[in-house]
């Protein structure tokens, strides 16, 4: 029997539906999450199955309903809040950084905050500077938070189920450009642990460490590289925290060359951290400095040719990797 395929959006929805059936404490809170099923239609059908008490439409109050979710999580529910665009996490910062991330520690382990924030990242949707950012580095910086970046429908389902079962605040970033991406997704109840990287493709000459949709870019680049006789390994950390340092370092030692790809800003960003981890752990096995590729350090522009220039593509990754492996 051929494997069942789902889109990334369907995989997210299936994870939510399964968890909501399994655990009546799980509820969804956010703007236009009920009948509208969000602007991306990721949640369509859930309010029909679970009712308006568990799929809760809110006013446009990101700080307010995120704060409510923190308190609800502390007192016995397992809320999944929906922040429509990742750019709007700015409005939730106090609730996530000063409240959710710290309640367990500050209380000496008494209170727990088992909540998930689902939000988006990713440019090239022609949405301009306030709807296109990839700000996951901000949360990755804060002890007490966990950050998940699924790159395939399979990972989306398994990681989201784990995130919902986790006892800590977890932020789950979905690249909005991947919602229609299809891939095999088992019907059964499987979970993927947080903090375990996945080698998406194995290779010998260069490691492409990539997150979220950059994994798809890296896999495309790997095919181009193969035609040039270069064997690329693609490693997806899947979570920026907890971070599976060992898998990254082992791959770097094996191939001796690394490019780190992430759609956030490189400066003080995820690529900076991953490159540092690899440089520290595999320094003596590297044949070249670790290279970083991410969003250009500019607000994301609207004009299509400008926007396209801001993010790594298969072609730019291919060229960078080829230059590293075959210096001219």
């Amino acid at each position: 029997m051929p494997e069942r395929e789902l889109t990334f959006a369907q995989a997210v929805r299936e994870a939510l539906a399964e968890e909501m059936r399994r655990d009546s404490r799980v509820c969804i809170i956010g703007e236009d999450v009920a009948e509208a099923g969000t602007p991306f239609k990721v949640l369509s059908g859930l309010v029909e199955e679970f009712g308006a008490k568990r799929v809760v439409d809110t006013p446009i109050s990101e700080a307010g309903f995120t704060g409510v979710a923190v308190g609800a999580a502390m007192t016995g529910l397992r809320p999944v809040v929906d922040i429509m665009f990742g750019d709007f996490i700015t409005l939730t910062m106090d609730q996530m950084v000063n409240q959710a991330a710290k309640a367990h520690y500050m209380s000496g382990g008494h209170w727990k905050v088992p909540m998930v924030m689902r939000t988006t990242l990713g440019a090239t949707r022609r949405s301009a500077a306030q709807h296109s950012q990839s700000l996951h580095a901000w949360f990755s910086h804060v002890p007490g938070l966990k950050v998940v970046l699924p790159s395939t429908p399979f990972d989306a389902k398994g990681l989201l189920k784990t995130a919902i079962r986790d006892e800590n605040p977890v932020i789950f970033f979905e690249d909005k450009m991947m919602y229609k991406l299809k891939g095999p997704v088992p019907e059964d109840d499987y979970t993927i642990p947080l903090g375990v990287a996945d080698v998406k493709r194995s290779g010998d000459d260069i490691t492409l460490v990539a997150t979220s949709s950059m994994v798809q870019v890296a896999l495309g680049a790997a095919i181009l590289l193969e035609r040039e006789g270069i064997s690329a390994e693609v490693v997806d950390p899947r979570t920026t925290w907890p971070l599976d340092e060992k898998t990254l370092i082992d791959s770097a030692k094996k191939t001796s060359r690394v490019i780190v790809l992430d759609e956030g800003y490189g400066r003080y960003g995820v690529t900076a951290e991953l490159a540092a981890v690899i440089a520290e752990g595999a320094f003596y096995d590297l044949d070249a400095p670790v290279k970083r590729m991410g969003a250009m350090h500019v607000p994301i522009p609207f004009s299509p040719p400008l926007e396209d220039a801001t993010v790594p593509t298969e072609q730019t990754v291919f060229e960078a990797a080829r230059a590293m492996c075959k210096p001219s």
Partner: peptide, 17 residues
């Protein structure tokens, strides 16, 4: 003002459960 969300969330739990 940091706990206004937490208190309201605790009330949300109380009502839901």
């Amino acid at each position: 003002g940091g706990s206004v969300g937490i208190a309201t969330g605790a009330a949300f739990t109380a009502k839901t459960l």
